[in-house]
Design a protein around this nucleic acid. Sequence first.
DNA 1: CTTACAAACGTCATTTTTACGTTTATTTTT
DNA 2: AAAAATAAACGTAAAAATGACGTTTGTAAG
Lengths: 245, 245
Amino acid sequence: MKPELILNISVDCVVFGYDLSTKSLNVLVIKRFLESETKKEVLVDDYVLTGYHVYTNETLDDTATRVLKELTGLTGQYKKQFKAFGDPDRLLNPKDLIWIKNAEFHERTTTIAYYFLLKTEEVDLKNNTSQAQWFPVDALPELGFDHKQIILEAYEDLKGKCLSEPIIFELLPEKFTINEVQDLYQSILGITIDNRNFRRKLINKKYIIALDEKQVGVSKKPAQLYMFSKEVYDKVFQKNYLISI
Amino acid sequence: MKPELILNISVDCVVFGYDLSTKSLNVLVIKRFLESETKKEVLVDDYVLTGYHVYTNETLDDTATRVLKELTGLTGQYKKQFKAFGDPDRLLNPKDLIWIKNAEFHERTTTIAYYFLLKTEEVDLKNNTSQAQWFPVDALPELGFDHKQIILEAYEDLKGKCLSEPIIFELLPEKFTINEVQDLYQSILGITIDNRNFRRKLINKKYIIALDEKQVGVSKKPAQLYMFSKEVYDKVFQKNYLISI
DNA sequence: CTTACAAACGTCATTTTTACGTTTATTTTT
DNA sequence: AAAAATAAACGTAAAAATGACGTTTGTAAG
């Protein structure tokens, strides 16, 4: 029962961040840049996801959590393992081979891909060593390895999941307005929703709790604030599809 | 960038088979049995999923396809990669350590788990070398490694997916009756559905095509046969949730 | 106090769902 | 050939949810 092939395993993280003010769903990626020795030629100039090898006594989830912490300083964010990518040639593009110098350890790496949901504003990019940068999910830069595919598959998974589970609230602040939820659905799904109908539907959910609070610091009529109650959601197993298309 | 840890990768397959006559959703597992040298003691006596290491020039999907073919002789069945299992201690139960004799190669194996959907009757267990056996998903035997957990997570994924995609038809013959579809939903989801309402709902789907055929060889009023048209389903993007709870 | 504007409310027609009871077609039994 | 048995198939009315709209309201800023 000797294994046919010994492989590496890594975890790659697609970090989705929602920017409430620009209503944009973003992905956090880091810069790859490499010049030739003479500096006459740019060999690699693109972006990649953050990822790392799995440590000895670490679960895959632990690795993902660690990678996110090192990148953003955050812990406890919503996390989902959504797919493993293991094609034998997935790291064998010319640019990627240049980038990976000690290629003997990298003949083949399978990566377990996770995505995280958080708010763009939670991440402080200032004191970040690895040149991390947000890009809107619909305007991604050039990406190394198979990372564009990984991001797109994560995005598809997210789209499906936000129709069947209340994960949308992971991308919003604790207190939010109805219109903010609508904007987020529209950003993620790329659709437009009738505000009056959406409003009625959402307010009727038992797990959407109206607070005794309104927006402050807005220059128009301040909107009512609401929160999502996971406790109620889990209990009153109401029809759980938040919206249907 | 030397990897911290070199790991094995395998693919494990949860084979779901639906038995139309007993209305039972089953899982195909294989027997593990080991006695002590004196034969006075049974060391291992349980079941496991089929799986195998990934070959050099094989994608993960290829490995899964190969494993299914070796087990059942079948190809082209519905297949889904649903999760990777990689906890460091997932193979370290006493029984599993006994079973794996050359443990130096197995200190840690991450498995990419797939599930397949097919009909129990398609599989001929007679000329099977590896003592494969079907068990109802709600009456699983004792299982080695973390394979019970893998099966249960596959089942959860299947439950969710059959509400949002027409994968249910992968478990049925090409020509089926309305009541057979209902029975299958009931088996998978563990619910009861009103036959008249279900019937109406299903018949109204454009992708459910009534055939010019009825059941033969039944001892009661023979039922109308239908088929599922993937082509129509993909085109007329009707509201795609087959049933809602 | 007027204006601008997003927030919030309201309604009606249509569709979908739910919760039931009855009829029909076929095989088997008498 | 008629009767019995049984699963298949049909029907319907009330309730709930959805879709497509137009109007009012509350607040900050001018």
